[in-house]
Design a protein around this nucleic acid. Structure first.
Length: 129
DNA sequence: GTTGAGCGTT
């Protein structure tokens, strides 16, 4: 049983978010988090949540704004509690009209969430030798 | 100064 858990944890991991909401990460590049662009500048987190909740449990929503927090940059992130929820939302919401704009949904770009070890350059002793 | 490609925080 421990072996089973070990093999599973090789493929499923959780990224830590501020509110403790975990982003599901399955294997390589498949996550429960979505990248949403083309948002109206008036689209808020609440509106995003309302629109995406029909596909599952939304655990985190973020609209990226400028420094002052005044102007939306027109894109954001939606994280679901499960990967299949995110997949369905992507398929269904991509190209849909939201708040008067056609929005585009994509999987989130890979970032250091994977279990791939970081590549190091040669150590100083190696470089000198 | 208000405009339209894009991957940010904690």
């Amino acid at each position: 049983m421990a072996a089973l858990r070990r093999s599973i944890s090789r493929f499923i991991s959780h990224s830590n978010a501020k509110n403790g909401a975990a982003q599901l990460v399955l294997s390589r590049g498949i996550t429960s988090k979505l990248f949403v662009k083309g948002l109206s500048f008036s689209t808020t987190e609440k509106l995003l949540t309302d629109a995406f909740s029909q596909f599952g449990k939304v655990v985190e929503v973020k609209v990226i704004r400028n420094k002052d927090g005044t102007r939306s940059k027109g894109y954001g992130y939606v994280t679901f509690s499960a990967i299949d929820e995110a997949q369905n939302a992507l398929i269904d919401m991509n190209g849909k009209l939201l708040d008067g704009r056609i929005i585009y949904v994509d999987s989130v770009r890979p970032s250091g969430v994977y279990d791939t070890p970081k590549v190091r350059g040669p150590s100083k002793s190696e470089a000198d030798g």
